[in-house]
Amino acid sequence: MDFRRTHAASTFALVLAVAGAAAGAAWSQGLWLALAGAVLVAVWCGALIVTALRRQNPAAYPIAGEPEREEAVQRLLLDASPTPLVRVDGAAVRALNRAARRLFDTDDRLLPPPTPLLDPDATHLRHAGRSWRADRVVVGTQSVVALIDVESEERTAEARVSAEMIQVLGHEMLNGLTPIVALAESGVTALAEQRDPALLAEILGTLARRAEGLQRFTEAYRTLARLPPPLKQETSVTTLVEDVARLFASRWPNVKLTVDVAEDLCATLDRDQMNQAIWALLQNAVEAATGTATSPAVYLSAAYDDSALVVDVTDNGAGVPPDLSTAIFRPFVTTKPAGTGLGLSLARQIAQAHGGRVDLAAIGPTTIRLAIPL
């Protein structure tokens, strides 16, 4: 009996450690519902550990109340969780808290239990018209499953991203408009005081360049916000890369471009959008290389790799700071004085619309990788 109690305490301690790790991951990702569920599971397991130790050694762990009272406290803690929790034991699934009983409209057992809950490899299920992620902790032959409302998490994440974008957009617009207003006032003053015409021409020229820069930023943001769904068709990637290389040579004649693309390389994609994505990666590489390198150079390659089309763009610039390796793909985040912070975000959005991704493949030299599944 003592062995079984010690084994039970060890098992619950393991679950407690797993719940703690899940809580840490949820905290770092800002998943507050998952965090609440992990914390309550940890509290529940901690209470069970104390109960098991008390039963093993009553003298060392004096019981503060009746067992019924402890069970009521544990039930109260579980019921306070907004995350539905269920226990799966073979083919039987039971609701552990009020949120689960309300979700499945039951007092105890789920009849019939949703099939994904019985599948130990299932990570998602659809119930009550909503999508749920199943976070599972296995304890022997049983498992505790926390059901996370995916749509609620997505809404929270979208609201956070929207707030960040609005804040940064307002900051960038103010940074662009402030010098324009100052230059306009200087032009009015110079005209009223009939100063040197050359000074007025210089002010107006600077004003025009500032306004053009703000216009380019606004157009880039509009392109990012209004990206249409891709119109996929069989496309010669070899021809696409060669066309981009010719445009590159005319646009940046002082930057060396090395191209490595196989012949007859084809993929099903939106040619115009992919052209835009590769061009955005090249422009990002050129800005990085010309900012620091004495002999700026960019390397562009395209090939098949593990059932995917992989496009790598490498530059010989200063590299990406490690603390910005993830942030550079967010809108308006840039390490360049004249950058808008929209190129990499646009390329990633295009890749994701194709079912692919854009990642930082290497820091020094910097390599941005675009991968599209075939």
Rank of each mutant, 00 (worst) to 15 (best):
D270H: 03
A134R: 03
L247D: 14
E234I: 11
L117N: 00
G46C: 04
A60R: 15
V43D: 14
A262Q: 14
I49P: 06
V244C: 03
E70C: 10
A64W: 14
I368T: 08
T238S: 12
V15D: 07
Q276E: 08
R4E: 14
L40Y: 10
R226P: 01
D119A: 10
L77D: 07
L360K: 13
D79A: 09
P322W: 11
R69D: 15
T367F: 04
L111G: 00
I148V: 08
D108T: 01
A184F: 03
S325V: 15
D312N: 13
E164S: 11
Y61Q: 12
P114D: 00
S301C: 06
K336V: 14
R357L: 11
T206A: 12
V244S: 01
T334E: 10
I372P: 02
V188C: 02
G317V: 09
P114H: 00
A192I: 11
P114K: 02
D121G: 07
R5Y: 08
L169F: 15
L111H: 04
L346D: 02
L227M: 09
L125V: 01
L227Q: 01
I63L: 13
R330T: 08
P322D: 15
N175L: 15
A347G: 02
A36T: 09
S236C: 06
L346P: 00
A8C: 05
T366W: 10
D196E: 09
F332K: 12
I180L: 06
R133D: 05
V18T: 15
F104D: 00
T141I: 11
V237T: 02
T123G: 05
D149V: 00
G37K: 03
Q194R: 03
V310C: 09
R357S: 12
V261H: 04
R210E: 14
D243L: 00
A36R: 13
V15T: 04
L207H: 02
V50K: 13
T6I: 14
T223R: 13
R5Q: 07
P116K: 06
M1E: 04
L309F: 04
A22L: 15
L103A: 07
A362M: 13
D196G: 01
L240S: 01
V41W: 00
R69Q: 15
A23D: 10
H7I: 07
G46V: 06
H124N: 12
S186Y: 01
A293T: 10
A19L: 06
V161W: 07
F217G: 04
S152R: 08
L342Y: 04
T366C: 14
T258W: 06
L227V: 04
T83L: 12
A25W: 11
T314Y: 02
I166H: 14
V333I: 14
W32I: 13
R209W: 08
T367G: 01
A208E: 13
L76I: 11
S345V: 05
A9N: 05
P82G: 03
D121W: 08
L125G: 02
Y61A: 11
T51M: 10
L281K: 01
L344C: 06
R271I: 02
M165R: 14
V237R: 01
A303T: 10
R251F: 08
